[in-house]
Design a protein around this nucleic acid. Sequence first.
DNA 1: TCCATATTTCCAATAATATAGAAATAACAG
DNA 2: CTGTTATTTCTATATTATTGGAAATATGGA
Lengths: 107, 107
Amino acid sequence: MENKEAVNALAALAQESRLAVFRLLVHNAPEGLTPGVIGEQLDLPAPTLSFHLKTLAQAGLVTAVQEGRYVRYRAEMPGINALIAFLTDDCCGGNPQLCSPKGKFHE
Amino acid sequence: MENKEAVNALAALAQESRLAVFRLLVHNAPEGLTPGVIGEQLDLPAPTLSFHLKTLAQAGLVTAVQEGRYVRYRAEMPGINALIAFLTDDCCGGNPQLCSPKGKFHE
DNA sequence: TCCATATTTCCAATAATATAGAAATAACAG
DNA sequence: CTGTTATTTCTATATTATTGGAAATATGGA
């Protein structure tokens, strides 16, 4: 993962509504949810939600598939795993056991 | 971790210079680095770097300790671990094995 | 004390982002 | 075809963040 790609993903998550949307989709993985249901659960106007879902999708954190007149959004697990790896990669110059008593990273 | 706290941490990381600073500190954990060294490595003007370090510190991602006329900044590992836990918590309604073939989360 | 170095605060210009109303598009049901 | 529901695009406004020069603060050495 590149620095810019990671910044994109982090920026996508760094917003209250979007983070809530993402976590709702993580919670509802792997089936996913439609914007209608998400908007109802989180009380977001459709245009606002659409804007946020697009942002999350462009960041590679969610995917969208058309299902008739609904769109099903799903959390993209490889995306979030890549981000986490990028953040903790190379920690302690390659000796993760230095980070914490039990070397919590890279288990 | 609260939603707002997480947004704060994510926003702190969602910026190219700050992400680079953070990763440099993760790489140089647990000893840490001084702003002088960081600024030299990443080619950042002192006021800009100071602003970014403050942002990271307020987000709980780095800590600062005064050492004579230097300040030593360190990556705060519990902070980043809490953030990661928050992002992947509760995944798949509590059945992480649904997320990926091997149930990669919460190993 | 006086000077050099390290870091931060102040500030103003600039840029990026979030919000939601109104209108547009798309799909299905009758 | 017509009406209904789902979602997105367009648009303007409001809000927030980033940047770095200049000045301020703080430490230690001569």
